[in-house]
Amino acid sequence: MLRIIIAIAVMTLATQLTRFFPFLLFSRRKPPQWLLTGSRLIPGAVMMVLVVSSIPHNLNFTLPGTWIPLSGVAAVSILHLLFKHPLISIFGGTGIYMTLLHFFG
């Protein structure tokens, strides 16, 4: 219980630090270019890390353990490029993944 409360407090603080950071430091002076460029590029790198490391989460190098998550990622990507609507991509892709898992997992 206490662990959960402290963890939530830490995550709230970490999240709010990202949102308040520009306002706390740069309400009067202009932010330097290297900081703007860096903070623009970091989200791309982080998202890639998150995708790569959230796949092997249940990828155990057995055949179904590999092709099912990879098919799920492919399904989400194709749906997103086709319909450009996050909800269709997220729920369509998750639905396809859950169906594959049910029949082949």
Binding site: M48, V51, S77, M98, G105
Partner: peptide, 23 residues
Amino acid sequence: APGLDFALTALFVVLLIEQIKTL
């Protein structure tokens, strides 16, 4: 709901595609 946790991976994939388009 076995496999529902894939929704997080799906969310990351969507955010990743948007980042690829932006950057």
